[in-house]
């Protein structure tokens, strides 16, 4: 299997879908000729022409609104928000339109669109290039919300998303675009080549939506994470030697509760991680579901490690980011309780 960065994996998925399904169109700001500010669509316009892959004006609401109209007519748009932080002008189109077209029309119209967006921090992007707005999407009935943590999953999940008949929010952790994250930002950057999940088939394959992956089996505590935080969890567990079971959720909505519940019933302990702010974050939902299903199996309160409830700072990024030290502390706290 060829090695791929996350960017190459995402590009490969779109390349394959453009090739296989002539209803596929790909567009967004700087997506066409230039190939995207993160290069995810590089070369695709050249290969498929500007009727399939094109640039748009800087208007996120129009980008999504057009996709809704195209999809209703039978096309399969996969659009890019340049940063997840830029999706807010499109939130009306996403939450009140895309998510509800099927339901409100009793299935007469559908909305098979994918909205890709780079999410999370770790690149000194400041408050408008670092946010993790996943909980805003998981709060919307009718959307599917996906966040891969590695190239293999990214490609397989994006293909599944593009083949799905419902609107999918596809969150791409930008810290992972070019390499896995060891949790130590000051250490040497490592590439995906050395990572087992940095290899993916060149052709078409699917990673199903709605299925979590146990990225590290263990017995003492269950860690629920997604995106960059999967790597932080792995680094923390490696450093402190705790036998944690790390679950990479991969799809947040619909959630693979079965995998989570089975694990927590086994370990009796649970730590929830996300980069987004704490209050009303997706972690709150995870904790609510886990306690409801596993209360009598729990040996300790469920703990969450998240970004602080403040705007994402620029210079103090790593004081904000929930790094391995904070995760380790939470794991120890849970085990000692």
């Amino acid at each position: 299997m060829p090695s791929m960065t996350m960017i190459e994996a995402i590009r490969s998925a779109m390349d394959i879908m453009l090739e296989r399904d002539n209803r596929t169109v790909i567009y967004g700001e700087d997506v066409g000729y230039f190939g995207g500010v993160f290069r995810c669509t590089a070369g695709l316009q050249e290969k498929y022409g500007q009727e399939r892959v094109f640039d748009t004006p800087i208007n996120e609401s129009a980008i999504v609104g057009m996709a809704i109209g195209m999809a209703a007519h039978g096309m399969r748009p996969c659009v890019e928000m340049q940063f997840a932080d830029y999706m807010f002008p499109a939130f009306d189109q996403i939450s009140q339109e895309a998510a509800r077209i099927r339901h409100r029309s009793n299935g007469d119209f559908t909305c098979p669109i994918v909205i890709r967006m780079p999410t999370g921090g770790g690149i000194f992007g400041g408050q408008t290039h670092s946010q993790s707005p996943e909980a805003l999407f998981t709060h919307v009935a009718g959307l599917k919300v996906v966040q891969p943590s590695n190239p293999y999953d990214a490609k397989g999940l994006l293909i599944s998303a593009m083949e799905d008949t419902d609107p999918v929010i596809f969150l791409e952790p930008k810290r992972l675009y070019n390499g896995p994250f060891g949790g130590d930002h000051s250490g040497q950057a490592i590439g995906w080549k050395q990572h087992p999940k940095g290899k993916a088939p060149a052709g078409h394959y699917r990673v199903p939506l709605g299925k979590a992956n146990i990225s590290r089996p263990g017995n003492d505590v269950t860690v629920l994470a997604y995106g960059t935080m999967v790597h932080v969890a792995e680094a923390a567990v490696k450093a402190c030697g705790i036998d944690a079971e790390i679950i990479d959720l991969r799809t947040l909505l619909p959630l693979d509760l079965e995998t989570i519940v089975t694990s927590v019933k086994k370990t009796g302990r649970c730590v929830v991680l996300h980069e987004a702010t704490r209050t009303s974050g997706f972690g709150a939902e995870l904790i609510a579901e886990v306690q409801e299903a596993c209360f009598y199996h729990l040996e300790a309160p469920i703990v969450r490690v998240t970004g602080w409830d403040a705007p994402y700072p620029h210079a103090q990024e790593w004081d904000y980011f929930p790094g391995p030290e904070r995760v380790t502390k939470a794991l120890q706290q849970t085990l000692e309780a």
Partner: peptide, 24 residues
């Protein structure tokens, strides 16, 4: 097309439908 009830959103969707008509 299914009417939303909030305002304005359908206008840009119409553009998308028309783009699809041209592309298809």
């Amino acid at each position: 097309f299914t009417v939303s009830g909030n305002l304005g959103t359908q206008y840009v969707q119409a553009v998308g439908w028309a783009m699809a008509a041209a592309l298809m």
